[in-house]
């Protein structure tokens, strides 16, 4: 009796589970809202803004400033970059030879270029303060030459004027798609230029493309503060004047990063590296912390 009871229950449970969850493979199913939880949230929202307003930023606990540096290196044998499929305006675009695929640039000593490292902090040094709208600063040049963007990955501050140029004898259109900011898609005539500004901070770099020449690809990351760096051809980066004496979090991104949105996920438990491509450091006052070589395995990149 006991035996049959067990069999029946097992069958009924198995049958129910299979029907409810399929055959073991996880399935993306939109969750049904929970009315009671929704009602509670609605009541909070109807009560309006809380006293004293906005910022929930955690209070800063440290003092002083420090510098962080490191070098991203490809672990193993890097793939040989291919060339892009140039299908338009070949007399101009291919004039200086085939266009190389710039999505993963590994130098002779295996340094990875165009990795973006940016900090999420509660305290900002004077030299890294946000730019006011209309700040009088020299525009950054974002040029197009030989049907490529000359800057493949650009990090800049919000409100930084950008001069979008076209140094080619053919027309381009520059399409910038920030997630929260204002999208932009303008024709830039041969030899022409246009002024542009990114007006709000992005959590991840925004793609830049050209509809006329679909192989053209670049990225722009606008940040409020100046705590960002893009690795150079040797894979190195340095961010000065970071808040010291407290734990700060840094985001690491690469165009081919395997994590969500291009996050670079490294197996570095010592740096509390997360699946969102973030790690934590605690700088001492006036310290220059060198993380040394940060090895990026092939599986961390797409």
């Amino acid at each position: 009796m006991r035996y049959w009871f067990a069999v029946l229950c097992a069958v009924s449970v198995a049958c129910g589970t299979t029907l409810l969850s399929g055959c073991g493979r996880p399935v993306a199913a939109s969750p049904n809202p929970q009315p009671q939880a929704a009602n509670e949230i609605r009541e909070t929202l109807l009560a309006g803004a809380s006293e004293g307003g906005g910022s929930q930023a955690a209070a800063s606990t440290g003092t002083g400033w420090g510098t962080l540096r490191g070098t991203f290196k490809f672990a193993g044998t890097p793939p040989t970059p291919g060339t892009l499929d140039v299908t338009r305006d070949t007399e101009v675009c291919s004039a200086n030879g085939p266009i190389r695929d710039n999505s993963l640039l590994v130098g002779p000593d295996k340094g990875i270029a165009n990795v973006v490292v940016y900090a999420r902090v509660n305290r900002v040094h004077d030299s890294a303060k946000p730019l006011e709208p209309g700040a009088d600063v020299e525009p950054l040049v974002f040029d197009q030459k030989d049907c490529m963007f000359t800057t493949h990955v650009m990090a800049c501050q919000v409100n930084q004027p950008i001069d979008i140029k076209n140094s080619d004898p053919v027309g381009h259109n520059t399409k910038i798609d920030p997630r929260t900011g204002v999208p932009f898609n303008q024709t830039v005539g041969a030899g022409g230029s246009l002024g542009y500004k990114l007006v709000s901070e992005e959590a991840l770099p925004a793609p830049v493309s050209c509809s006329i020449h679909p192989w053209m690809q670049a990225y722009m990351l606008p940040r409020e503060d100046k705590y960002f760096a893009v690795t150079t051809s040797d894979g190195g980066f340095e961010i000065p004047n970071l808040p010291a004496g407290e734990e700060i979090e840094l985001q690491v991104w690469h165009e081919r990063g395997g994590g969500p949105g291009g996050a670079v996920v490294l197996p570095r438990k010592d740096l509390k590296w997360t699946r969102k491509g973030r790690f934590k450091v605690n700088l001492k006052q006036d310290e220059t912390l060198d993380l040394g070589e940060l090895e990026v395995p092939g599986s961390a990149l797409k």
């Binding site: 199913a29 969750p31 049904n32 809202p33 009315p35 929202l45 949105g261």
Partner: peptide
């Protein structure tokens, strides 16, 4: 769900998003 899968939002946070949207 495509965006959610791409952003790798875990199930508990998906539930929260659904609840907030119903609240709003």
């Amino acid at each position: 769900m495509v965006a959610i899968a791409e952003k790798q939002i875990p199930a508990n946070q998906q539930q929260k998003v659904a609840n907030i949207l119903e609240a709003m």
